[in-house]
């Protein structure tokens, strides 16, 4: 059964910044970034979630982002941020649940490092029975294929010339029509199921995206009346663009066909 049941799925509401928990519901991190792969002319498909300061730094941007990302690279083997393949997720609902047990994950490494080198050395820091490094035998720890130790958790299939994109690469990029009309920055990505993968199906731009992130745009948040009214107004300032209308995607801008931007209620969803 696929982890992602929403169709369409808006990443800023449903995935980004959501809490990531292990199979027992213990927090292991946050969805700090997303990785996509694009083969040939297909729309990019979601391959994994990224966690940790290195991924977060890219989202934050600016000097601060570089500092945060730098802190993430202090790990001895700087092989990119911890990553979990979408196929290793158990559930994506109000939080993201992994199929694995926290003791079987190779991250967060700083947690283990601090435990072994600092906290564990302070007198009185004896371990409670429930934690620690029990090998994952107890209570049938689920360790699906591909979630093994040693960092191959979603290092991501990077084979075969597929183009790799991060959500942080895309979000914030200015979107313009071919004629030059500016549509604002890219604020959100809409994914749709395509067989057993999820591909980017639409772009959301404009200043009203706060309604999407807070959850008002899709009827999930239903009150209070004042915020509902404000968010309805904000929503009018967002534009939805179908992926098919995309003309060009570069580091600096996203070019779309003239007249591609549809407002909510005009049939773009």
């Amino acid at each position: 059964m696929p982890a992602i049941t929403d169709d369409p799925l808006h990443v800023s509401l449903r995935l980004l910044d959501r809490r990531v928990v292990d199979v027992d519901g213990e927090p292991v991190g946050r969805v700090d970034d997303l990785a996509f792969e694009q083969d040939a002319d297909d729309a990019p498909r979601l391959v994994s979630i990224l966690m940790g300061p290195e991924a977060l730094g890219a989202r934050l941007g600016g000097v601060l982002g570089r500092v945060v990302a730098g802190a993430g690279r202090l790990r001895p083997d700087a092989a990119g941020p911890p990553e979990v393949a979408v196929t290793d997720l158990e559930e994506v609902d109000t939080e993201v649940r992994l199929a694995a047990h926290r003791d079987d994950l190779p991250f967060p490494r700083s947690e283990a490092w601090v435990r072994d080198h600092v906290i564990g050395r302070i007198p009185g820091a004896e371990r409670s029975s429930s934690g620690g490094k029990e090998p994952g035998g107890e209570a049938g720890v689920r360790q699906p294929p591909g979630t093994g130790r040693g960092g191959e958790v979603g290092r991501g299939p990077a084979d075969g010339g597929a183009r790799r994109l991060r959500a942080s690469d895309l979000l914030g990029t200015p979107v313009v029509e071919r004629s030059g009309r500016r549509l604002g920055r890219l604020r959100d990505l809409r994914l749709r199921a395509d067989g057993d993968v999820h591909r980017i199906d639409g772009l959301v731009t404009g200043r009203g995206v706060v309604a999407e992130r807070l959850g008002y745009a899709y009827g999930e948040v239903v009150g209070p009346a004042l915020l509902v009214a404000l968010m309805r107004r904000a929503e009018r300032r967002t534009s939805h663009i179908d992926w098919e209308d995309l003309v060009e995607l570069t580091a600096d801008r996203i070019v779309v066909r003239d007249g591609a931007a549809a407002r909510p209620g005009e049939g773009a969803t």
């Binding site: 967060p108 947690e111 620690g132």
Partner: peptide
């Protein structure tokens, strides 16, 4: 904010960064 495990006492060994 960062999604670290947190918690006092009962979970110290699992929330080492928090305790530090």
């Amino acid at each position: 904010y960062f999604g670290w495990p947190w918690g006092k006492f009962e979970k110290r060994d699992r929330a080492s960064r928090f305790n530090l």
